[in-house]
Design a protein around this nucleic acid. Structure first.
Lengths: 250, 250
DNA sequence: GCCAGAAATTCACCTGCGTTATTTTTTATG
DNA sequence: CATAAAAAATAACGCAGGTGAATTTCTGGC
């Protein structure tokens, strides 16, 4: 069940069969499925559960009083939301779906218990949490300094490489299920300008985007154009590269 | 020595005298002082130490290849940088001083050992880490959605309340040691526009700023003008309010 | 109290992106 | 397959904030 999640943790550490079994059982306990454009967690909710995205995309967002919405993070299969959240009392932002989503709802006790019994899993959860924080910082850089083209290009690089990390790319191609309005809310740009910017990226041959199908013909070219460096994703902890990760047994 | 830090943790939990002594000894082990505009940590450094700001201000920043700089976080006395960082291999951003800074350099082993022996401290460190992450997310909202005036007002609210949390305000007044260029780099605006925006905030009576001296005559007015809500700082975990925190014994 | 460099301020002009509105295309749904 | 609703694309115009260049005001060191 937590196929993509296990694959992602593999980027960081080697989990034992026992670890894997424990994870699978905790994750399998309570799995739910909801439609697109619904909330998994609302602002102000008690911080009681951790959620693992099994299928589909979601986002963390904050809605301002006057309606403006900022997406502060995208969640894709394999992503854990609010891993160690139980220390805080209530959620300060909401988590909503962008597509229909299947997710596992994990109680703090179940997660804590497992972490206590499986130190490598605990270590991997920390890594995942720290990487999320690192991504958040990079978003700050992205919104603060980069032009619309660089900014959007940077996001596409990040999403593509993260999808690669959980095995959801095929060659230089992946599925990008967000609408242009979602991208706009994430990048602090208007939908009109997202559209213009996508045209520009298309025009310069850096991306091919038809419907939900994204192809990046030359990832390093897009990276260069977007001032993107992947170090902040910390995918290289154990000194392996993506290509070197053997396919995950399903 | 870690006076402000202890005071901040007090917002979250009640530490025992024993906890406090342990913290003090770990923090006192290696204290250094460096000048303004120097780096404490450079991008690419091994992630070996944790730093506690004892006096002065610093920031986490990232410099793009072409010279643009984004400040992604401000550090003030009592702030811990990269608490659980040892899981990651190398730093993806740098930490530099804005003023002369006194800081404690804590080895991962010393911190880990203490955390293992003092569960309440561990819990408090988690809280601190999660609050930092929450602040980072709010910065994303700030840069993505708010206008220059709201954005800067929001930052000033946050800094003021954080200073309050470590006992560095007097009434509605505090010291703001940043230059306008620093504020510009943090807010993704030009120095010229930061200047214009400060004038505007002054003109509407929301702030009084002379040199490093900042007064906020009516904090709730500034909050309202900036769409600021303090929930993301999670200062209310134990249900107490700032006013109710007794002065810290020094 | 003087001096140099840093910081703040001001000015004039410009551009990247926003806004509003309309049209076209795609995608769900009965 | 028809239809409605959502998403994408296009267009015209406006403004928030950027740029570059002076100028003035602070600040720290002697």
């Amino acid at each position: 069940m937590p196929r993509h999640f296990l694959r992602k943790l593999d980027l960081f550490t080697r989990l034992s069969a026992d670890d894997r079994r424990a994870l699978e059982s905790v994750v399998g306990e309570r799995v739910r499925r909801i439609g697109a454009r619904e909330d998994i967690v609302r602002e102000g909710d008690a911080a009681s559960h951790v959620h693992l995205i099994v299928e589909g995309w979601a986002c963390r967002y904050k809605q301002l009083e006057d309606g403006r919405r900022q997406i502060v993070a995208f969640f894709m299969p394999g992503d854990l939301c609010d891993t160690f959240i139980d220390v805080l009392r209530e959620m300060d932002q909401a988590i909503g779906t962008l597509t229909p989503v299947t997710f596992a709802e994990i109680s703090r006790d179940a997660l804590g218990g497992m972490a206590a019994r499986h130190p490598r899993i605990l270590q991997a959860l920390w890594w995942d949490t720290l990487v999320s924080a690192s991504i958040q910082r990079e978003w700050t850089v992205n919104l603060g300094q980069r032009s619309a083209t660089e900014r959007l290009g940077h996001l596409l690089c990040e999403l593509f490489i993260r999808l690669q990390g959980v095995g959801l790319t095929e060659g230089n191609h992946c599925v990008l299920p967000t609408t242009q309005a979602d991208l706009a809310d994430a990048m602090g740009l208007s939908t009109v300008h997202i559209n213009r910017t996508l045209q520009e990226l298309r025009g310069s041959g850096l991306i091919v985007l038809k419907g939900r199908n994204l192809t990046i013909p030359d990832l390093s070219a897009l990276q260069a154009a977007s001032l993107f460096t992947p170090n902040y994703l910390h995918f290289d902890h154990v000194g392996r590269h993506l290509d070197a990760v053997e396919p995950l047994a399903v």
